[in-house]
């Protein structure tokens, strides 16, 4: 059986790849994808903890299901806003979101 640590290594890598991507990417959709990586790493964490440490209960699985549903809703809103930005300025590069600074 695969040990718990391996899953946790995967989820930690996902988490920090997401943070790195969120900070360095210059395209709104790529930033959104990076945030999705963070949320997925959280889902892995919950499931792994539940499966390996507390197999007699279901709290972590339920949390994962709700987190997936809610992050889908958030993504839908974020994409709607990005589409609106595209309609306003015909591209979605972060460098164009500079009307308001400081």
């Amino acid at each position: 059986m695969i040990q718990m640590e391996y899953y946790l290594i995967v989820s930690t890598i996902l988490m920090f790849v997401g943070i790195y991507g969120f900070i360095t990417r210059r395209n709104l959709l790529a930033m959104l994808i990076s945030v999705e990586l963070i949320l997925n790493s959280v889902d892995i964490n919950f499931v792994v903890f539940n499966r390996f440490l507390f197999p007699e209960q279901l709290e972590g699985f339920f949390f994962t299901l709700f987190a997936i549903g809610i992050s889908a809703a958030e993504t839908a809103v974020a994409i709607a806003i990005i589409i609106n930005i595209y309609r306003n300025m015909k591209n979605i590069q972060v460098k164009n979101l500079k009307n308001m600074k400081w």
């Binding site: 988490m15 997401g18 969120f22 709104l28 930033m31 959104l32 945030v35 963070i38 949320l39 790493s41 959280v42 964490n45 987190a67 992050s71 958030e74 993504t75 809103v77 974020a78 806003i81 990005i82 609106n84 930005i85 306003n88 979101l97 009307n99 308001m100």
Partner: peptide, 20 residues
């Protein structure tokens, strides 16, 4: 629209950190 994008991306990122 610009404010909305900044808000939703920060909020998503924040809730990701919080969930972690």
């Amino acid at each position: 629209a610009e404010a909305g994008a900044k808000f939703i991306l920060s909020a998503l990122f924040a809730s990701g950190l919080m969930l972690y």
